[in-house]
Amino acid sequence: MAHALPDDVLSAAQSGDPAAFSSIYTTLAPGVTGYLRARGMEDTEASVQEVFLTVFSRIGTVRGGWQGLRTFTFSVAHARYVDEVRRRARHPGFADYDPGADPRTTGSAEEAVLDSLAASDVGKQLKALNPDQREVLLLRIVADLSLEQVAEIMGKSTGSIKQLQRRGLLKLKSLIERKEALV
């Protein structure tokens, strides 16, 4: 328990004496810090500062001498704790999501489509394209993106995306015609 200060220290603080404020803080801050830390406050030091800013801004209203000041200070500390509990209830903390630890995870629809596409004739034909042509066709046709969007994603000019698309489609056409000729 903090040692008691004479009641005249409160009177001096109410008159604006800086030494009285310092004495009050030095005497009460350790107890307030311990109280808030024991209650599980996230940022104890900041909360202690807030408590004393409130206490010192309203010190002129404190009655009852030293005991009245202690009671008022700890009631402000308790109010800060209650505010913190309410804030946590409104804004719960978030934990990082670990998909490896979540048994509910399944492959995305995109993964399923791409897996089935890779096993199909179309997938085999897409593999015959160079990687840039394949990427452009997938982004343009499957993802339904504009030339400009694909250019931005791939870091290329719109003109080069048009060329890659044209060449990729011509190669696919050639592959399909060759396959049909064999049938």
Rank of each mutant, 00 (worst) to 15 (best):
I59Q: 05
S116P: 00
R80I: 06
D96W: 11
T71L: 11
R104W: 02
F56V: 02
G100F: 06
R88D: 04
E84D: 12
E110P: 01
T106H: 12
E111M: 08
D102A: 10
P99T: 04
R80H: 12
L139C: 07
R104Y: 05
E110H: 11
R70F: 09
Y97H: 09
D144H: 13
H91T: 14
S108P: 01
Y97G: 02
L126R: 00
V142S: 03
G100C: 02
G68A: 07
S75V: 09
E135I: 02
R140L: 10
A95C: 10
V142Q: 09
P92L: 08
F72L: 06
L147V: 13
D115C: 01
S108E: 09
R70S: 12
D132M: 11
R140A: 10
S108G: 09
P131D: 12
G123A: 07
A95P: 02
A79S: 15
R134V: 04
R88H: 12
F74L: 14
E135L: 11
Q67R: 06
Y81I: 06
L129E: 05
E110M: 09
Q133C: 02
A143V: 07
T73C: 08
G93Y: 06
H91Q: 14
A95Y: 13
T106D: 13
P131K: 11
I141L: 13
V85G: 03
N130A: 09
A89E: 14
R58C: 14
S120E: 00
A109N: 00
R134Q: 11
K124C: 08
D132E: 13
T105M: 15
R86C: 00
T61G: 01
E84C: 03
L114N: 03
D132I: 11
E84H: 15
A109I: 02
R90Q: 13
G65C: 09
E111Y: 11
A143M: 08
A109G: 04
V142Y: 15
R88G: 10
D83H: 11
H78I: 01
P103A: 03
R86D: 05
I59E: 05
G60P: 00
A79C: 04
I59L: 14
L138A: 10
F56Y: 13
R58H: 15
V136K: 00
S57A: 15
K127P: 00
R104C: 08
A95V: 14
D98R: 12
E84T: 11
T71M: 08
T61W: 00
A109W: 02
L69S: 02
R80S: 09
A89I: 04
R88Q: 13
S116R: 14
P99M: 05
L114C: 07
A128V: 08
A109E: 12
G60V: 06
T73D: 04
R58T: 15
H78Q: 15
E84R: 08
F94A: 13
G68P: 04
L147P: 00
F72K: 01
S116F: 06
Y97V: 11
L138H: 03
H91M: 06
S116K: 10
E110D: 09
